[in-house]
Every structure is written in structure tokens, then in C-alpha cells.
């Protein structure tokens, strides 16, 4: 039950409720734990509540780090070969 998923906010209903898109399924979530959520934001949804916003820039940075870790080893292996 700890599993939670990133979802895009597609509509704001009122201050405390939004509709998110979960892989094509529309679902309403409570925004009671967050401030200033806007349409287009990604939030992490858990037991019907948005726990936090997801930062797209940080996501890109992490993906770049992961790709780089693999490449570095590759380069090292090539050098020593």
C-alpha cells in the first residue's frame, strides 16, 4: 500500500481537489497537503492524496547521472582493452 505513482494534474476542481491523469485514467485526488498546484504539474499520488510535487528538472538530472554512470564504466573498459 506504500506504492504511489506520479500523475499529471489535468484539471483543478476547487482549492483542495484536482483531477489527475493516471496512464489514461482520470482520477480525483485531494490537494489538501500541497499549496499552489497548477494544471500540468506532476504530483505523487498516494491513498487519494497528492503527497508532493515532482520536479521535472531534478528528474532529468537524475536520469543523466544514471546514464553517465553506465557510460563511465564503458569508457574505462574501452581504455583498458
Amino acid at each position: 500500500m506504500c506504492l504511489a505513482i506520479p500523475a499529471r494534474v489535468v484539471e483543478l476542481i476547487d482549492n483542495d481537489t484536482a483531477i489527475v491523469d493516471l496512464g489514461g485514467v482520470r482520477k480525483d485526488v485531494s490537494l489538501a497537503l500541497l499549496e499552489g498546484v497548477a494544471v500540468g504539474d506532476y504530483v505523487i499520488v498516494h491513498v487519494g492524496y497528492a503527497l508532493t510535487r515532482l520536479d521535472p528538472e531534478e528528474a532529468e538530472k537524475t536520469l543523466a547521472l544514471m546514464a553517465e554512470a553506465g557510460l563511465m564504466e564503458h569508457a574505462l573498459a574501452e581504455q583498458s582493452a
Binding site: L33, L34, I44, L51, T52, L54, K61, T62
Partner: peptide
């Protein structure tokens, strides 16, 4: 997990 976690967390929560 910097895309979702900060040092202070969710203060409102």
C-alpha cells in the same frame, strides 16, 4: 530522489 524529496519535506503536511 531529488525529484520529490527536499531536506525539509512537506511542511504543510
Amino acid at each position: 530522489f531529488t525529484r520529490a524529496v527536499t531536506p525539509d519535506g512537506n511542511l504543510k503536511a
